[in-house]
Design a protein around this nucleic acid. Sequence first.
DNA 1: ACCTGAACACCGTTCAAGT
DNA 2: ACCTGAACACCGTTCAAGT
Lengths: 223, 223
Amino acid sequence: MLHAAVALADERGLEALTMRSLGQALGVEAMSLYNHVSNKADVLDGIVELVAGEVVAAVGEIGPPAQATEWKPVARERILTARQVLLRHRWAPSLLESRTDMPPSLLAYYDSLLALMREAGFSLDLAHHALHALGSRALGFSQELFTTDDKDVDPDAALLMFQQMAGRFPHLTELLKIVTHDPGSTLGRAGGCDDQFEFEFGLDLLLDGLERLRERAWELPAA
Amino acid sequence: MLHAAVALADERGLEALTMRSLGQALGVEAMSLYNHVSNKADVLDGIVELVAGEVVAAVGEIGPPAQATEWKPVARERILTARQVLLRHRWAPSLLESRTDMPPSLLAYYDSLLALMREAGFSLDLAHHALHALGSRALGFSQELFTTDDKDVDPDAALLMFQQMAGRFPHLTELLKIVTHDPGSTLGRAGGCDDQFEFEFGLDLLLDGLERLRERAWELPAA
DNA sequence: ACCTGAACACCGTTCAAGT
DNA sequence: ACCTGAACACCGTTCAAGT
């Protein structure tokens, strides 16, 4: 049943996952579901737990570093692998953020990340702050504020807005120009930014910064 | 009316903001609202726009750097100021992420951040990736995955879970111990982490990394 | 131009009733 | 033990009717 819920969310989005539609997908009335779960919250917790399981399974394939101080490429690979899983379940990030408590299998994932850093010489404090700094990036996603809605955009209206923007927001306009028109460089998807590139760029910025702090045996700034 | 909606969300949460409750707060039937907005989506867009206006007003107080290369402390102050505004509207971050298009006044904010970086010598590409890397942090928030729900936690059950965790997740347990028991160091709120400290730690990690790339006149890695 | 009440299509959920 | 249908309290929203 949870698998059916995941499939439904994958195919038709999280908002299409209702008790009634889930029942229908299972060839059963909505009310029957309450014999197996006590809540819709139970269903949501369940499907989050399911993709968390996928994440730990995929990440589990990745071995430890040959040398403990070589933590960075391993952390990077684990995180990018987690990302691959979450890209198959686009609804998972926002749902994950809305749940009040962490799914148990994710605890294993975070514990393994912590282990990686601790063994590389991170102090407990630094490893702690590192997890916070990575935030959702540790799981392979980062909520983008600029979402490019390419569909149903009127070219005339877009051009007009563009010209109005040029006056008030010159730097944004300049940026928009290279992002939408320039086919080379870091672009991937038509008309938008290359999510994967931007994700890795931000991730490396953080990992490199953390590595630098590790090398300097970072201590807490005096209070 | 939008002010009433913001007040309602501030006081009772976003889920308490319904057309009916908003009407009631204004001493009017819910259906009357449709004379002023065409949708509930309109209301949500409106209140997002309103706090975006608060952000640009607060950030506008902050002057430019004395020297263009001194972009970092100014960027830092702007971002922490934006954070102060968003902390007054706890519902804003998640709503901001769910909206499909960016509120116009936020474009001004992002344009000013871009200007700051460009004038400090950032290439257009680097400034672009910097905005993506900062992500929601540029606006002063970062979605925390671990939410400490201190309320209604049964001490006995917590202790039991703690002991079970100790075996399977030794590093997390060790972390939990310093976070909950140690009253000194980086702790702020009882039983949780110091959100403000963690936010600034992650922010500085990114800003420092970006400054380093700026100094080296960062170029795109060869494709 | 603005407000109202009844109504509709959707939710999650309860409950008594069936097998 | 599992399923069902009717019902309830909530949504957002439409529409004809009022002033």
